[in-house]
């Protein structure tokens, strides 16, 4: 199970920096009791040490997260920014990336979310999909669209190749 709903989306977020985005998303997760109150702080501390910016196209994204200790229930929060903020590149912490979209995957257990991670990785490799996500006009539409892409409504079948299914 992965919790993801419209209250976990920040649309047109006007943030000054990466830390603000992380705090906003962690605050939304905490507001629904999905993570501990310190999750934002923990995630930012980890981001400084192990950055999660990714040089995707047509714009860069970031994938911040912290250790499972602070997660009560596996969940996802999404920020679509009105102007980019800088995250460091995961593969090269010296490099600044201008990030437009932030996905915070609070994960109790990575193996349990492996299908979602796989589907996210498929999405990250497709510029038209990332553009489509950024262009969703409401939080509800963004949730419906992303739940469909990640096959979140049909995860009862373990190890199924959800990426090969087209209906949602």
């Amino acid at each position: 199970m992965l919790t993801f709903n419209e209250k976990l989306v920040a649309l047109d977020l006007d943030a000054v920096d990466a830390r603000t985005v992380i705090e906003v998303l962690a605050g939304k997760l905490h507001g629904q009791g999905l993570v501990v109150a310190e999750y934002g702080q923990q995630t930012y501390a980890r981001e400084v040490e192990h950055p999660t910016g990714l040089p995707t196209n047509p714009f860069c994204i970031a994938f911040p997260h912290a250790d499972a200790d602070g997660v009560k229930e596996s969940s996802l929060a999404l920020a679509i920014l009105s102007k980019p903020v800088v995250f460091k590149n995961m593969a090269d912490p010296e490099e600044d990336l201008q990030v437009f979209l932030v996905l915070m995957l609070a994960n109790r257990n990575p193996e349990e979310q492996i299908q979602t991670l796989r589907n996210l990785a498929l999405l990250f490799g497709q510029p038209d999909k990332l553009a489509a996500l950024r262009d969703q006009s409401t939080a509800e539409k963004a949730v419906t669209w992303l739940r469909g892409e990640l096959h979140l409504n049909q995860q009862s079948v373990p190890n199924s190749r959800a990426s090969e299914r087209r209906d949602s």
Binding site: R46, E49, H50, H65, D67, A68, P110, E111, I114, R118
Partner: peptide, 16 residues
């Protein structure tokens, strides 16, 4: 191998 070992290396491990 990755920097922190939660979400990102899990994807690569699984695909391989």
């Amino acid at each position: 191998a990755c920097g922190a070992g939660i979400n990102t290396s899990t994807v690569a491990e699984d695909i391989i």
